[in-house]
Computed example of a mutant assay.
Amino acid sequence: MMGTLHEFRAERSANRLLDRIRSAADREQLALVQALILDHALTVPDFSANDFRERLPADLPHGLLGAAVRGLASSRAITNTGRTVPSTSPDTHGHRIAVYRISALRAEAEVA
């Protein structure tokens, strides 16, 4: 099913913003956050960004967690389940965020 033009533009705008966050962030920070996500993903069936907020340093650049999740999803290391949950971040006012799981191929590679 194809989304509306408005949805397409919103997604494209979000992707550009996340690309800017990724390029501005320290590569080491981004790699550490992604490693934390993958490590967690191997221990639970499903997860969202809510699972990581309190475990990350307070001085982490704003938006880096979302950029890390989106990068892992783009590389197919994690897969969107199609479900959403309310965000626990006070800044987001409870908007819905995606629930993910580790991709089967990635999980098999980690176990092997």
Rank of each mutant, 00 (worst) to 15 (best):
M2D: 05
L5Q: 09
H6E: 01
E7L: 06
A10V: 11
A10S: 08
E11N: 08
R12K: 13
A14N: 08
N15E: 14
L18G: 02
D19E: 10
D19A: 12
R20L: 11
I21C: 00
R22L: 15
R22F: 05
S23L: 11
A24R: 12
A25L: 08
R27T: 12
E28M: 14
E28S: 15
A31C: 05
L32N: 04
V33T: 05
V33I: 15
V33N: 01
Q34A: 12
L36C: 10
L36G: 03
L38I: 13
H40Q: 10
H40D: 04
H40N: 09
A41W: 02
A41F: 05
L42W: 09
L42E: 15
L42V: 05
P45F: 13
P45V: 07
S48Y: 06
S48H: 05
S48M: 05
D51K: 04
D51T: 07
F52L: 06
R53N: 08
R53D: 03
P57A: 12
D59H: 14
D59L: 11
L60W: 04
P61V: 08
P61Q: 06
P61S: 09
P61G: 04
H62R: 09
G63A: 03
G63Y: 02
A67N: 01
A68V: 06
G71V: 05
L72R: 00
L72E: 02
L72V: 05
L72Y: 00
A73N: 03
S74C: 13
S74D: 09
S74N: 10
S75D: 13
S75L: 12
I78A: 02
T79A: 10
T79G: 04
N80D: 15
R83N: 07
P86A: 13
P86M: 14
S87P: 01
S87W: 04
S87R: 04
S87L: 03
T88D: 06
T88I: 11
T88C: 08
S89Y: 12
S89K: 09
P90F: 02
G94A: 14
H95V: 13
I97H: 07
Y100Q: 07
Y100I: 03
Y100R: 03
R101Q: 15
S103Q: 07
A104G: 15
L105T: 10
L105K: 15
R106A: 13
A107V: 07
A107S: 07
A107I: 06
A107E: 12
E108P: 05
E110G: 10
V111K: 10
